[in-house]
């Protein structure tokens, strides 16, 4: 974590109770796919701003239901809006899905260590996302695109289960129209309505795209987010290309109750995903990554 960010947390959180959520007003809810939705939230208070680093997450509380960790998926340079894209997979996220514009949601955060995009300046950037994993990567891509001149090639590889599961579809299309960004999208299977598929894009796992793209394996930062098995095979492909484990970053997911290192749930070997992660370099966790039931 950057020293200034650490110092910020130090002064901010040591005084306040880090377990108290703050109600944020929901400005807009947008359905993304059948089971994912994006909420734009208005930060409360005088400042009406929410600053975060790409890759950080918040704990989101639905009144009376519970709290879950959700990565921040908006633009880090647009602090007037806090954006979360969530997949409805459990009691809390399903209740969250029912919230509407004008409702409130509790927010604690931002927590954790994000993507080291500042340190990657001058390098090529390869972002590899699977499914909802595109949401935590998007702030990093926004940040890189906002300072596009400072980076080399920028490549986004994205895999979804089916064409209907593709997240941020319009935005992907507009990104793909850019000359300074390479975007490849693939789906696991393309059978759609009545066995007739309108999908004319790539079919196959996202890892199969890695061999297609050109980047400098010695001057690259790879940023991965998706299911662990997808990240595992992505790392294998990147290593085949000669990318070092210390240039590969991935976001880990574990059960979390507090996000501040007290509840113990998110332990991953010696690390607490909440405060030492969720972003790790592969070099840091390669020993654990190969082990089962850590």
């Amino acid at each position: 974590m950057a020293p200034e960010l650490e110092a910020g947390i130090d002064t901010m959180m040591k005084v306040a109770d880090p377990m108290l959520p703050q109600p944020f007003r929901i400005r807009r809810v947008k359905r993304e796919t059948a089971d994912t939705f994006t909420m734009d939230l208005d930060p409360p208070g005088e400042a009406r701003a929410f600053s975060f680093a790409p890759g950080q997450f918040n704990m989101l509380y639905v009144f009376g239901v519970g709290e879950v960790p959700v990565s921040i998926s908006g633009d880090p340079d647009k602090t007037e809006t806090l954006v979360h894209t969530t997949r409805a997979v459990g009691a809390v996220t399903e209740a969250m899905q029912g919230l509407q514009s004008g409702d409130s949601i509790g927010v604690r955060g931002p927590f954790g260590r994000g993507w080291p995009v500042e340190e990657a300046r001058g390098k090529d950037i390869v972002l590899v996302a699977g499914g909802i994993g595109l949401a935590p990567l998007r702030p990093a891509l926004y940040r890189v695109l906002a300072r596009r001149d400072e980076y080399g090639k920028v490549v986004l590889l994205y895999g979804a289960r089916t064409p209907a599961d593709i997240l941020y579809r319009r935005e992907l299309e507009s990104w793909r129209a850019r000359f300074d960004l390479e975007v490849y999208v693939t789906v696991d299977r393309a059978l759609a309505e009545r066995n007739r598929s309108s999908w004319r894009g790539n079919v196959g796992v996202v890892t199969s795209l890695i061999q297609r793209v050109a980047f400098d394996p010695l001057e690259v930062m790879a940023i991965l987010c998706g299911p662990e098995v997808m990240m595992r095979f992505t790392i294998m492909e990147l290593e085949k290309r000669g990318v070092s484990g210390s240039d590969i970053y991935l976001s880990m997911e574990r059960n979390m109750k507090c996000a501040i290192g007290f509840c113990g749930h998110c332990q991953y070997g010696p690390s607490f995903i909440c405060k030492d992660g969720p972003v790790f370099s592969y070099h840091e966790i390669s020993d654990l990554f190969a082990k089962r039931e850590v």
Binding site: M19, L20, D103, S104
Partner: peptide, 14 residues
Amino acid sequence: RLWQARREGNGFQI
């Protein structure tokens, strides 16, 4: 008990 919350309109207060 860490905190309580009260519904207020379509929002709530901690």
